[in-house]
């Protein structure tokens, strides 16, 4: 028996296959969630079945916003539990997980590998991946370019938390001739401050692990660490934390 985790988020869909002992990642798959979760789930199913294991030999756990669209899953779990478990696998069992997702941001407190507390952002998109995606788009940049530019900028304060208002705020800044670098830096700063406010609503352990799509955005990770006053650890597998956790719980 091998264990698969399927994590269909609002922006990206992730698949992971773990070995029988659940100690090693055998395969990873990352794709855009697209507009149809069911179709995305189907593509991940095809991928899973192409890995050389029969369906009987696979135990599949689905998580994420689109978990209800994975008819072939043996079980579904919420992304909170899965991200917690996945982060414990990647970074150890006693830490505070920060997951910046496409449409929500979560802070999960892990104690001895178990989720003991969590908080999610309220219903607006401030402090989520969506916020940065909208800002990058507005400036005609891909996310990689956006982060590269932000790193060289001097932070301008973006005061609106609301994505829609912040977008018009940066339009005004662009109108004033503010360099894109500074605006990008300001947008990252806005997300970081919103995320750290969420972290401070819980009793963090002082050790942080970042999961989600920004796990390789070094500038954001560093800024987050500066504001929290502690090191934020992550790894390229951070984006698969939900899927890894799901597979571990299979």
């Amino acid at each position: 028996m091998v264990y698969a985790g399927i994590d269909i988020g609002s922006t990206a869909a992730k698949g992971v296959l773990l070995n029988e002992a659940k100690t090693e990642i055998l395969a990873r798959k990352l794709m855009p969630s697209g507009w149809n979760s069911r179709q995305t789930a189907e593509e991940l199913h095809t991928w899973l079945l192409s890995l050389g294991h029969s369906r009987e030999d696979l135990r599949i756990i689905a998580t994420g916003y689109g978990r209800v669209s994975v008819p072939y899953a043996d079980k579904t779990l919420t992304e909170i539990t899965c991200h917690g478990k996945g982060a414990a696998f990647l970074g150890g069992g006693d830490l505070t997980v920060i997951d910046i997702g496409g449409q929500d941001t979560k802070v999960i407190v892990l104690t001895g590998g178990r989720v003991t507390d969590f908080v999610m952002n309220d219903k607006c998109s401030a402090g989520t991946g969506k916020f940065l995606e909208v800002m990058a788009n507005r400036m005609g940049l891909g996310l990689d370019e956006f982060f590269a530019m932000a790193e060289t900028g001097r932070e301008v304060k973006i005061s609106s938390m609301c994505t829609v208002f912040a977008e018009s705020e940066i339009v005004s800044l662009m109108g004033l001739g503010t360099p894109r670098e500074d605006i990008a830096c300001g947008a990252v700063g806005s997300v970081v401050s919103k995320v750290s406010a969420l972290v401070n609503r819980k009793s963090p352990s002082g050790k942080y692990y970042l999961t989600g799509g920004f796990c390789e955005a070094g500038f954001l990770v560093r800024k987050l660490g500066e504001v929290l006053g502690a090191e934020v650890i992550t790894s390229p597998d951070g984006r698969f934390a939900g899927a890894i956790g799901a597979a571990l719980l299979g």
């Binding site: 919420t78 992304e79 003991t116 999610m120």
Partner: peptide, 9 residues
């Protein structure tokens, strides 16, 4: 989602 996660917890 929050209720689901709380039950799992």
């Amino acid at each position: 989602t929050r209720l689901g996660a709380f039950i799992e917890m």
